[in-house]
Protein backbone atom coordinates (compact mmCIF):
# COMPACT_ATOMS: atom_id res chain seq x y z
CA UNK A 1 0.00 0.00 0.00
CA UNK A 2 1.28 3.46 -0.74
CA UNK A 3 0.35 6.69 0.95
CA UNK A 4 -0.04 9.49 -1.51
CA UNK A 5 -2.13 12.60 -1.40
CA UNK A 6 -3.49 13.03 -4.88
CA UNK A 7 -4.97 16.42 -5.67
CA UNK A 8 -6.41 15.15 -8.90
CA UNK A 9 -6.91 11.63 -10.14
CA UNK A 10 -4.98 10.47 -13.15
CA UNK A 11 -8.27 10.28 -14.99
CA UNK A 12 -9.21 13.68 -16.38
CA UNK A 13 -12.52 15.01 -15.14
CA UNK A 14 -15.42 14.02 -17.34
CA UNK A 15 -14.18 10.56 -18.21
CA UNK A 16 -15.64 7.69 -16.30
CA UNK A 17 -12.69 5.34 -15.91
CA UNK A 18 -9.06 4.92 -16.80
CA UNK A 19 -8.63 2.99 -20.04
CA UNK A 20 -7.52 -0.62 -19.74
CA UNK A 21 -3.78 -1.02 -19.21
CA UNK A 22 -1.44 -2.17 -21.95
CA UNK A 23 1.93 -3.94 -21.83
CA UNK A 24 4.48 -1.06 -21.70
CA UNK A 25 6.95 -3.04 -23.83
CA UNK A 26 4.54 -3.07 -26.79
CA UNK A 27 4.90 0.63 -27.71
CA UNK A 28 8.70 0.43 -27.37
CA UNK A 29 8.96 -2.57 -29.69
CA UNK A 30 6.61 -0.79 -32.09
CA UNK A 31 8.80 2.34 -31.92
CA UNK A 32 11.83 0.19 -32.82
CA UNK A 33 10.06 -1.19 -35.93
CA UNK A 34 8.98 2.35 -36.90
CA UNK A 35 12.53 3.68 -36.37
CA UNK A 36 13.90 0.99 -38.73
CA UNK A 37 11.42 2.04 -41.45
CA UNK A 38 12.26 5.72 -40.93
CA UNK A 39 15.98 4.90 -41.22
CA UNK A 40 15.24 3.44 -44.67
CA UNK A 41 13.39 6.66 -45.61
CA UNK A 42 16.48 8.67 -44.60
CA UNK A 43 18.69 6.33 -46.66
CA UNK A 44 16.48 6.80 -49.73
CA UNK A 45 16.89 10.59 -49.49
CA UNK A 46 14.63 13.11 -51.27
CA UNK A 47 13.05 10.59 -53.67
CA UNK A 48 9.60 9.29 -54.58
CA UNK A 49 10.18 5.82 -53.00
CA UNK A 50 11.12 7.61 -49.76
CA UNK A 51 7.87 9.61 -49.95
CA UNK A 52 5.86 6.42 -50.45
CA UNK A 53 7.50 4.71 -47.46
CA UNK A 54 7.05 7.82 -45.28
CA UNK A 55 3.35 7.82 -46.22
CA UNK A 56 3.13 4.17 -45.11
CA UNK A 57 4.69 5.10 -41.74
CA UNK A 58 2.39 8.12 -41.34
CA UNK A 59 -0.68 5.94 -42.06
CA UNK A 60 0.56 3.42 -39.46
CA UNK A 61 0.53 6.19 -36.83
CA UNK A 62 -3.15 6.95 -37.57
CA UNK A 63 -4.83 4.09 -35.60
CA UNK A 64 -2.24 4.61 -32.84
CA UNK A 65 -3.11 8.29 -32.54
CA UNK A 66 -6.85 7.58 -32.44
CA UNK A 67 -7.08 4.44 -30.31
CA UNK A 68 -3.59 3.81 -28.93
CA UNK A 69 -0.42 1.97 -30.00
CA UNK A 70 -2.05 -1.43 -29.40
CA UNK A 71 -4.26 -0.70 -32.44
CA UNK A 72 -1.32 -0.41 -34.89
CA UNK A 73 0.13 -3.24 -36.99
CA UNK A 74 3.35 -2.84 -34.97
CA UNK A 75 1.32 -3.54 -31.83
CA UNK A 76 -0.20 -6.58 -33.51
CA UNK A 77 3.29 -7.87 -34.46
CA UNK A 78 4.39 -7.39 -30.83
CA UNK A 79 1.48 -9.46 -29.53
CA UNK A 80 1.98 -12.13 -32.22
CA UNK A 81 5.78 -12.53 -32.20
CA UNK A 82 7.37 -10.84 -29.18
CA UNK A 83 4.99 -11.05 -26.24
CA UNK A 84 4.69 -14.88 -26.24
CA UNK A 85 8.47 -15.00 -25.71
CA UNK A 86 8.46 -12.59 -22.74
CA UNK A 87 7.29 -12.98 -19.16
CA UNK A 88 4.30 -10.99 -17.99
CA UNK A 89 5.03 -7.29 -17.49
CA UNK A 90 5.67 -5.85 -14.00
CA UNK A 91 2.97 -3.23 -14.47
CA UNK A 92 0.37 -2.51 -17.09
CA UNK A 93 0.44 1.04 -18.40
CA UNK A 94 -2.06 3.68 -19.32
CA UNK A 95 -2.28 3.79 -23.16
CA UNK A 96 -2.68 7.59 -23.17
CA UNK A 97 1.04 8.54 -22.93
CA UNK A 98 2.08 6.37 -25.92
CA UNK A 99 -1.04 7.48 -27.81
CA UNK A 100 0.17 11.07 -27.43
CA UNK A 101 3.54 9.98 -28.85
CA UNK A 102 1.74 8.36 -31.82
CA UNK A 103 -0.08 11.66 -32.40
CA UNK A 104 3.24 13.55 -32.45
CA UNK A 105 4.64 10.94 -34.86
CA UNK A 106 1.62 11.35 -37.12
CA UNK A 107 2.02 15.15 -37.11
CA UNK A 108 5.73 15.04 -37.99
CA UNK A 109 5.57 12.34 -40.67
CA UNK A 110 2.26 13.71 -41.98
CA UNK A 111 3.88 17.14 -42.46
CA UNK A 112 6.70 15.45 -44.41
CA UNK A 113 4.20 13.62 -46.64
CA UNK A 114 2.16 16.78 -47.32
CA UNK A 115 5.30 18.77 -48.20
CA UNK A 116 6.57 15.88 -50.35
CA UNK A 117 3.27 15.70 -52.26
CA UNK A 118 3.46 19.49 -52.73
CA UNK A 119 6.78 18.96 -54.50
CA UNK A 120 9.16 19.69 -51.61
CA UNK A 121 10.85 16.26 -51.64
CA UNK A 122 13.71 17.62 -49.51
CA UNK A 123 11.28 17.71 -46.55
CA UNK A 124 10.80 13.92 -46.70
CA UNK A 125 14.16 12.82 -45.21
CA UNK A 126 14.06 15.71 -42.72
CA UNK A 127 10.66 14.70 -41.37
CA UNK A 128 11.80 11.07 -41.30
CA UNK A 129 14.97 12.09 -39.42
CA UNK A 130 13.07 14.01 -36.72
CA UNK A 131 10.59 11.16 -36.31
CA UNK A 132 13.48 8.65 -36.24
CA UNK A 133 15.11 10.57 -33.37
CA UNK A 134 11.93 10.38 -31.26
CA UNK A 135 11.10 6.76 -32.16
CA UNK A 136 14.65 5.48 -31.62
CA UNK A 137 14.91 7.28 -28.23
CA UNK A 138 11.56 5.82 -27.23
CA UNK A 139 12.69 2.30 -28.18
CA UNK A 140 16.18 2.49 -26.62
CA UNK A 141 15.99 4.65 -23.49
CA UNK A 142 12.22 4.94 -23.02
CA UNK A 143 11.90 8.63 -23.89
CA UNK A 144 8.34 9.76 -23.21
CA UNK A 145 7.28 12.52 -25.61
CA UNK A 146 4.22 13.44 -23.57
CA UNK A 147 6.45 14.13 -20.56
CA UNK A 148 8.72 16.45 -22.53
CA UNK A 149 6.17 18.27 -24.69
CA UNK A 150 2.86 18.42 -22.80
CA UNK A 151 3.70 21.24 -20.38
CA UNK A 152 5.55 23.23 -23.06
CA UNK A 153 2.45 22.96 -25.24
CA UNK A 154 0.22 24.10 -22.38
CA UNK A 155 2.57 27.04 -21.71
CA UNK A 156 2.45 28.10 -25.35
CA UNK A 157 -1.33 27.84 -25.44
CA UNK A 158 -1.49 29.93 -22.25
CA UNK A 159 0.90 32.53 -23.70
CA UNK A 160 -1.24 32.91 -26.83
CA UNK A 161 -4.49 33.23 -24.88
Amino acid sequence: MTRTHRTAPHTPEGTTAEPAGIDPRGPRVGAGITAALLAVVVLLGPTTPALVLLAVVALSFLPGAVRGPQATWQGWLFRLLVRPRLGSPEHLEDPRPPRFAQLVGLAVTGAGVVLGLAGVLAAVPWAAGIAFLAAALNATVGLCLGCELYLIGRRLRRARA
Binding site: T4, H10, P12, P24, H91, G142, G146, C147
Partner: peptide
Amino acid sequence: APVCAPCRATARVLGALSAGEPGVAHV
Protein backbone atom coordinates in the same frame (compact mmCIF):
# COMPACT_ATOMS: atom_id res chain seq x y z
CA ALA B 1 0.62 14.87 -16.51
CA PRO B 2 -2.00 12.52 -17.96
CA VAL B 3 0.25 11.74 -20.95
CA CYS B 4 3.25 10.76 -18.80
CA ALA B 5 4.00 7.10 -18.09
CA PRO B 6 7.11 7.67 -15.89
CA CYS B 7 4.91 9.83 -13.63
CA ARG B 8 3.06 6.65 -12.57
CA ALA B 9 6.31 4.82 -11.85
CA THR B 10 7.66 7.78 -9.86
CA ALA B 11 4.37 8.02 -7.91
CA ARG B 12 4.72 4.33 -6.98
CA VAL B 13 8.32 4.88 -5.79
CA LEU B 14 7.51 8.01 -3.74
CA GLY B 15 4.26 6.51 -2.41
CA ALA B 16 6.16 3.49 -1.12
CA LEU B 17 8.86 5.73 0.43
CA SER B 18 6.31 7.94 2.22
CA ALA B 19 4.46 4.87 3.48
CA GLY B 20 7.67 3.34 4.84
CA GLU B 21 9.25 6.45 6.37
CA PRO B 22 7.64 8.40 9.23
CA GLY B 23 7.14 12.11 8.61
CA VAL B 24 7.48 11.88 4.85
CA ALA B 25 4.57 13.04 2.69
CA HIS B 26 4.02 12.53 -1.04
CA VAL B 27 1.72 15.00 -2.77
